[in-house]
Simulated scan of single mutants.
Amino acid sequence: MTDEYVAQRYAHLRRAAFLMCGDWARAGESARLTLARALTDPGVGADAGDLDLWAYADLMAAFKPGHSRREHVFVAPAAAGYDDAQAALRDTYTVLVLDALRRLPPKCRAVLVLHHFCHLAVAETADVLGLDGNKVTEYEAEGLQAFQELLRAGQPVAGR
């Protein structure tokens, strides 16, 4: 693994970790630890495709139930700093999406993050999480339904 790979993947791994935990400091540390293990573990493959899957699997292992986890509550920025209502509404929706994602069961959240944000195929998501493809599809359906309900329940009213 090269320094170039680390530079290219750190930001993406950090964002994926943030979607799992909601804490930028913890996400950064998780991404750094994953990349450090990739650099020092002689068993990690040199193929970039395999290395990406290995990195996602290592990263997701930090967020399995039972690991110490801090819950982060997303807070919308103060509206006074906005020049227009559209920016305030966009940031409010971002907070709602992140909060809804945080409320999903961990397996559903992991499947949605890996499949939809990281763009892994169902089979790759299954490999990363140690599941079979049918289970990934079930978690995805359950997660999307719950996610939609959570968003609907917390949807802001424009113009308020």
Rank of each mutant, 00 (worst) to 15 (best):
E4I: 15
Q8M: 15
Q8F: 15
H12T: 14
R14L: 10
A17T: 10
M20N: 11
G22S: 10
G22F: 06
W24D: 15
W24G: 12
W24S: 14
E29P: 04
L33T: 15
L35A: 07
R37S: 06
G43K: 01
V44K: 00
G45E: 11
A48S: 13
G49R: 06
W54P: 01
Y56S: 07
D58G: 06
M60L: 05
G66V: 05
F74D: 08
A79D: 08
A80Q: 04
Y82T: 01
Y82E: 02
D83E: 09
D83T: 09
D84S: 01
A87Y: 02
L89M: 10
D91S: 02
V95D: 04
L96P: 00
L96S: 10
A100L: 07
A100Y: 02
R102K: 14
L104T: 12
C108W: 06
V113T: 10
F117Q: 14
C118V: 14
L120G: 07
L129D: 01
L129G: 04
D132M: 08
N134P: 00
T137N: 13
E138M: 13
A141Y: 03
E142Y: 07
G143F: 07
L144D: 11
A146R: 15
F147P: 02
Q148M: 09
E149K: 14
E149S: 09
L151D: 04
A153R: 10
A153T: 10
A153C: 12
G154I: 11
Q155Y: 11
P156N: 09
G159R: 14
R160D: 02
